[in-house]
Amino acid sequence: MIQFAQVCKRYPNGQDALRNVDLEIKAGEMAFLTGHSGAGKSTMLKLISLMERATSGQVIINGKNLNRIKRRKIPSIRRDIGMIFQDHRLLFDRSVFDNVALPLMIAGYDHREIGRRVRAALDKVGLLSKEKNTPIMLSGGEQQRVGIARAVVNKPPLLLADEPTGNLDPELSAEIMKLFEQFNQVGVSLLIASHDLSLLAQMHYRTLVMKESRLVQDQIDDVLEVDDSFEQDNDTNLVRSADEF
């Protein structure tokens, strides 16, 4: 599903965000991506969603080599990727229903089909009763769930989440993770960037650790060996990561 081969990313200001990253995430796999702020997590997600291009190396998503994707083909790639953001990125002048319907409208679905799928997605995240509300009337956790509904409504094979629980309390975070697990169970691949180490410790999934622009750890068992400095930085990272992505 996701393949990185010797991927480097250098930003125009000379900063190396990724150095020689090799990675493979298979279809139907769920993985977490963790590490310091500025370790390259966001850059990785941006390369996958074509918000940035690799300076060198290959990024292959869903069998498509992104290096060869022309600008006008970007939308069709993005339609196969559901994206979930820490700040939700909802449109506040539209109803919850319209927000979730957006990917379907863009893809040109029939309006009855849109209604059916949007309600199914909202039902899945438990917000069916709020479809007529605007996002501003919802709590942070609810807004995040609207964002998730929007990401899954056109059933993309891959979900990317950038700090999806960054602003939520542990209980809500656990709920969100449960949702992700449910998607994974029906075959969706997920890559979730998160700082929330205690949450990661509860979830027994593959975890990729980034440090100084490199992928330093890739393990599937539940014992996460995290060095001390990372633990100490964690709180400040949570705050700083809100500005990222």
């Binding site: 969603s49 006008r72 939308p75 790639i77 339609r79 957006l102 990917p103 863009i106 929007r150």
Partner: peptide, 10 residues
């Protein structure tokens, strides 16, 4: 930006 992220064409 949001609409582009969910796959809208120009």
């Amino acid at each position: 930006e949001v609409v582009k992220l969910v796959g809208a064409t120009d």
